[in-house]
Design a protein around this nucleic acid. Sequence first.
RNA 1: GGGCGCGUAGCUCAGUGGGAGAGCGCUCGCUUCACACGCGAGAGGUCGCAGGUUCGAAACCCGCCGCGCCCACCA
Length: 869
Amino acid sequence: MTDVPASERAAVPERPTLDGLEQKWSEAWERDGCYSFDRSATRERVFSIDTPPPTVSGSLHVGHVFSYTHTDAVARYQRMRGKAVFYPMGWDDNGLPTERRVQNHFGVRCDPSVPYDPDFEAPAEPSEREPVSISRPNFVELCLRLTETDERAFEDLWRTLGLSVDWSMTYTTIGERAQRISQRSFLRLLASDEAYQLEAPTLWDVDFQTAVAQAELEDRERPGAMNRVRFQTVDGADALIETTRPELIPACVALLAHPDDERQRGLVGKQVLTPLFGTRVPVLTHPLVDPEKGTGLVMVCTFGDLTDVVWWRELGLPVRSVLGPDGRLTDVPWGAAGWESDDVERAQREYEELSGRTVNQARKRILELLGEAGELVGEPTQITRAVKFFEKGERPVEIVTSRQWFVRTMSHTDELLARGRELTWHPPYMRARYEDWVNGLTGDWCVSRQRFFGVPFPLWYRLDGSGAVLYDEPIAASEQQLPVDPSTDVPGGFAPEQRGEPGGFIGDPDVMDTWATSSLTPQIAGHAGEDDELFASVFPMDVRPQAHDIIRTWLFSTVLRSQLDYGELPWRNAAISGWVLDPDRKKMSKSKGNVVTPMHLLEEYGADAVRYWAASGRPGTDTAFDAQQMKVGRRLAVKLLNASKFALADLPEEGAELSSPLDRAMIARLADVVAEATSSFDSYDYARALERTEVFFWWYCDYYLELVKGRRYDAGASDAARAGAASVSRALSRSLSVFQRLLAPFLPFVTEEVWSWWQPGSVHLASWPDAADLRDALGGAQPAHGEQQALALAADVLHEVRKAKSQARRPMRAPVLRVVVHDTAERLAALELAADDLRLAGSIEQIATSVAEELAVTVELAQDVSEGA
RNA sequence: GGGCGCGUAGCUCAGUGGGAGAGCGCUCGCUUCACACGCGAGAGGUCGCAGGUUCGAAACCCGCCGCGCCCACCA
């Protein structure tokens, strides 16, 4: 700690205030490059953060403020520990939400087959009629234009909140670097056979008409009807099944029973005819069939749900697909190979009633047809069941056969589980979510999406002489070309005119799953493969902060990509934050309409106050939104202003000694608090660090300051009094410096303000307080046990005196004739060390003592007597 | 169905083997020389229920109940 000459100190304001601190200091930090990453630092001196890039097209809400404050507190702590903190910001701007907004806002539609138009101007007004078809690069340009405003709104918020981000390191997930790195990583996966394409049953959203991944599914409760339907064996026996999806009867490929189900024994091995369509399907067995469910006999279709896929694959069943990518039933060639029927004419006739209809329409119609044919047994049962939805979708996902790109995960699950155990989780139990997810994976990661605003696959395909696509011969871009957009760029060896021509080429029309890019944030932020020096100094990163709901997506996929690219973890720690719940303990979400936007909170309570509320939420724990806590935070900030003003009114003389017992004892306690805050921060428990600091700070203001105030004002009467006053001054400047720094990670604005009153430079670049230094300041020897007892006992007695005055309805400065303290001889001896301070603090004329088993205090007010406990 | 977490004062929560705590809210008091954006004091709890281990359990073990989240092959 450096004492600055009084002439160079900023004056302590007459009336300190929190107003305007956000703007004043965020401008100063930007101007001074306070949070610039020190590129000269080697890896050991770096603390690197894999910042979550917020989805900029989503709404800003207090949940953002909550978790980003947690990370910022840790970042500020590490910076004060002397680390070069690598803390970039990213914007997640690629993906579906942006696409939808661009389509509506500009009245355009992306068509990857349209060539790029460099002179394209977006329509000023969206067309009333048909949307304009534009090329993918043009569409992406519009997306970028729209996201720019969103990103500014986020940046404003982050600056007002006081995130100590190095804004020169900002990246976007659709930016050129992100595209290049995503494409490069993909090409390498392709070369090492970790990426492959396959035509297979794929989870499919019929509205967006794109493949989706297992990780993007969620269950929603939906009402449905369970229908009992009659199949018949060729010799006329009934085989009853129950189904919620009768529209898939034409796609039925088998009936299944459990191998041990006696009731079905007569049917197993036989052929049955599908109702209405007369297709012969076998009755087989599979252990996954639950004999307790329905009739014990289940229909397998291609494909009604994921279980169908399992049965289809394991039993080697044929594909009979009736569902198109738009969610409507397609035409079907009854009588052709694979579509055999005992009554082709009838099958055609019945199916014409369904063809072209949506799933729901077809379901309704086939139930009528089955009813008319007498194949419906009994009344349908109304049930509620969980149905799989794409998390951003509006209709249930279907399973459609299509050609997609996959990244291998199933062959790496053991490595992924091992990496999960290497990673330090905060809090530790969050690892279970990761392990559950890895253990529950059922297939490789489908990374291709039939969308537009994303990173394209850097691939083209040859066309044969008839113009058919030769998917098995992809032409990969070279790494030097990246990033490429195959819908516009041309592969080596071809001319632009050959696009789409027989013998020519065609670009891969798909883009990558948004997580395929987000899973590379450490590489993107660290400029992997493009700035080797930087990347080496930040990777593997120290910490990934994120919320628990995206462990299965973001965290998992990042671990996977790092494992595939480098064979190691992308970071050492995962700091998992909870959610912000509304006061009714429901998750805040746009759809529930319970979202609280943060900007007005920052204006009303101040950034430090909002941060205080956020930092009180413990790692991993969901926290209810509570404006009351922000008021408490504001109180703390105001208290720091005033306590600082008090302490700085009189800085210590050169050579002032910490001679007084209470001062020494307080400093010793403070050293313990520093030690605890430090170890809490080291294990990412910012909330504990704050709580311990705060509790002690309030005690310090309420008891310590009151106990020593009198001695401080009483300076000058004698040598002893001067020494006593000098000791207070020394203790105040010591302790205040420590409090200001302990609170700096949480309340960056007010701490910077009070620091500026008496210290050079930024508090955020000052060194974190050190418990050993504080103890050294006591002259080597720890305060004696008696000094510690004196402080505790003086506080207890002061409390009793205040109680007596309060109960007598007298002012706190009302004089006390006599206080009798009853306690053990040892403790009474200790109290003697604090007697002078106590007398001044309590306006006490005389302190008498009496030996007793335990503490009791008698207070005699002037003209009044009151008993204490 | 499996897993994880939680259950302590009206509210939000801390407390991992030995005094049941904090803040807010509530009540009462105090124009106190850092702070009325303040200060002081007080009331308020069967620590979800039941059993066990222990000299001693809010904490450790077993079971149950309730809430939340994640996962699942929900026909």
